[in-house]
């Protein structure tokens, strides 16, 4: 699906005359492969380069060095631009800044309209996409009257209507309350499970990534850690050193282990912790 090879992205800082005064390397020699149907999470604190990386997957940005291949297409190939953007859908952070139309259904139809899809099929796609994210009843509403979580689900539907193979969610929950966050993550997981769409979730909320197939942790533009959620979350000290938080349950298990309880590493859910504790108790 994605093949990122030795990719470097540099931002140029310029003064008023346009002379380059400094170079910031946002992404530094990153290699990353994603298989179709995966649920990938990219973690990192602010300024770690994760959003810059995400924008490469949709050819909004181009690599300064190395290459990014989306479904066999090079993002620097201008003729493939629209095909790449249709293959990879993007959902951004601020729901208000990505909804274009004044009605929910019209916004979902915006993508297919741009692709030149015939009118009847647009309606069909809009209906399917809104149903997939559970927003069909709101189709005649103004986006201004929806909650944050609902707006993000509309944004996801807008991307879905373009029939992408992959959806990149760039901190989709950063501006939402906890219930809105759950709504959005549930919608993203459903797409991955049911429709087998590749999902790349970029976030700094640890609770959202415990279901991912694979996690990449970024720091200073480099991939600092990678592995399954179990592998990543068994390295609590390293995560804390990267200024990332750890799910509360994992942290509790980690602290208990440090105090001498023989718990396994990488406990991610409350059920798991309870099970392990019960096992320990029965052994004594």
């Amino acid at each position: 699906m994605f093949d990122i090879r030795n990719m470097v992205h540099e931002y140029f800082r310029r003064d008023e005359e346009g002379n380059v005064t400094g170079i910031t390397t946002a992404v530094d020699h990153v290699n990353l492969q994603v298989a179709p149907g995966d649920f990938i999470a990219i973690l990192g604190h602010n300024g770690s380069g994760k959003s810059t990386l995400a924008k490469h997957l949709n050819a909004i940005l181009y690599p300064s060095e190395g290459s990014v291949w989306v479904d066999g297409m090079d993002t620097r190939d201008e003729e493939k631009l629209m095909a790449i953007r249709q293959t990879t859908g993007m959902v951004f952070q601020n729901p208000d800044n990505q909804i274009i139309a004044q009605l929910v259904e019209e916004d979902v139809g915006f993508g297919p309209e741009n692709l030149g899809v015939p009118t009847d099929e647009i309606w069909q796609r809009v209906e399917e996409s809104l149903k997939a994210v559970g927003m069909y009843e709101y189709r005649k509403k103004s986006p201004n009257r929806l909650s944050g979580g609902q707006k993000q689900r509309v944004s996801i539907a807008g991307v879905l209507a373009m029939h992408p193979k992959c959806i990149v969610l760039d901190e989709p929950t950063a501006m939402l309350d906890p219930s809105g966050r759950r709504e959005v993550i549930r919608a993203a997981r459903a797409l991955n499970d049911v429709e087998r769409i590749t999902v790349i979730l970029i976030t700094h909320y640890m609770e959202e990534v415990v279901w991912a197939d694979h996690i990449y942790v970024m720091d200073h533009g480099k991939v600092a850690m990678e592995g399954t959620p179990k592998e990543i979350f068994s390295r609590v000290e390293e995560l804390l050193a990267l200024r990332l938080s750890v799910p509360q349950v994992t942290l509790l298990a980690h602290e208990l282990k440090k105090r001498g309880l023989p718990l396994p590493a990488g406990i991610l859910t409350r059920d798991e912790l309870v099970k392990e504790l019960v096992k320990l108790k029965s052994r004594r």
Binding site: I60, G89, M90, G111
Partner: peptide, 18 residues
């Protein structure tokens, strides 16, 4: 950026939902 990500490229070749 969001519009470009959704393949917006002006009025040419665009169809209408309504």
């Amino acid at each position: 950026m969001a519009m470009e990500a959704r393949c917006y490229q002006g009025g040419e070749g665009r169809t209408k939902m309504k």
